[in-house]
């Protein structure tokens, strides 16, 4: 058993790119679901259009890196409009169905042979991160203590990534304690009551969808920047589902909930996965092969998610009282 690898990968996951990317995706979902009560199950689509927006702008259209970022942001904003206009006036479950369908449309289009010249088919696009890493101020070397640490490339990525995560948290904090945030929370409780008090509910829902979508799209950028590539199948429904698990784990409608949730989620996910893989490799679990570790790990996330919602819906740090009030 290679415990050292298990422990280092686990620690790295807690502060590594996974927590940055999924933390941002979850901050977006938290704005939608936690604060506004919108069931956006297409968060992966926001990440995908942003990641592809950047990748296609740089590799296919030969635009500079910053233009790629602008295009990615614009794509996410347009997606929010396209999703929001037909569904935000309807019952909550329609939004869930439509967003999950839209995410699937986006994925299918990106992986299609028909558009291979633009999006690169199932291989996706790579080779758009040069400008980002060219800005790296860190000299080459190892940053960290003992076996824990990152090279200059990763540390630059993490410095930018965590700054953006904290900035997003600050924006959420400021907005949610303002009257604007109050309207969102009120919509989550009962949108008809809010309408009866003279607030344009549709407009607020749209603002929420857009804000959460744009923060989710930052997650798409960072995914592409770390991995150096975007592939369509990364942005499947599982990714959105992980973001929901993270939000509920950390406690919905809490500013730092998604960040803490992402760290806990990835620690568990990586630790369980690596430990299982090691156990199988060393013959402790004879009925399993290493390729079966993947699905078991995902199944455990599903199981954990169900148990969390049934037993502790307020998340690890949530207040039971708040949830009890809502259980009508």
């Amino acid at each position: 058993m290679d415990w050292l690898t298990i422990i280092t990968t686990t620690v790295h996951a807690a502060i590594g790119w996974e927590s940055v990317v999924y933390g941002l995706a979850a901050i977006g979902v938290n704005i939608h679901f936690g604060y506004t009560g919108l069931l956006n199950f297409g968060q992966a689509a926001f990440m995908a259009v942003a990641g592809y927006g950047l990748a296609v702008a740089v590799t296919v259209m030969n635009l500079p890196f910053w233009m790629g970022i602008v295009i990615g942001l614009a794509a996410a904003a347009i997606l929010a409009l396209l999703l929001g206009i037909p569904t935000l006036q309807l019952r909550a479950d329609y939004l869930a169905i439509v967003t999950i369908a839209a995410a699937e449309i986006v994925r299918l289009v990106f992986r299609s042979v028909y558009f291979k010249d633009i999006f690169g088919g199932s291989d996706g696009r790579r080779g758009f991160t040069g400008d980002f890493y060219a800005m790296n101020p860190f000299p080459p070397g190892h940053y960290g203590i003992g076996p824990f640490g990152f090279d200059e490339r990763v540390i630059w990525f993490l410095a930018v990534g965590w700054s953006v995560v904290l900035l997003s948290c600050l924006v959420v904090y400021l907005l949610m304690k303002s009257p604007w945030g109050r309207v969102l929370k009120a919509i989550r409780e009962d949108e008809d009551a809010v309408r009866a008090l003279g607030k344009n509910v549709f407009s607020y829902k749209m603002q929420s969808l857009m804000l959460g979508g744009i923060i989710g799209c930052l997650a798409g950028f960072f995914y592409g920047l770390y991995n150096g590539a975007v592939q369509p199948d990364i942005f499947g429904t599982e990714m959105t589902f992980f973001a929901y698990t993270i939000v509920i784990l950390g406690g919905a409608a809490r500013v730092f909930g998604p960040v803490v949730g992402a760290m806990i989620f990835w620690v568990l996910f990586v630790f369980v996965g690596n430990t299982l893989a090691e156990l199988v490799r060393n013959g402790f679990i004879p009925f399993m092969t290493t390729t079966q570790v993947g699905p078991i790990r995902y199944a455990l996330v599903g199981l954990g998610f169900i148990l969390l919602l049934v037993i502790r819906p307020q998340g690890i740090f949530g207040d039971k009282r708040e949830i009890a009030i809502n259980a009508r």
Partner: peptide
């Protein structure tokens, strides 16, 4: 919860 159930069963 049913979405969690879907992930569990599928995997």
């Amino acid at each position: 919860i049913s979405i969690g159930m879907a992930i569990l069963l599928r995997n």
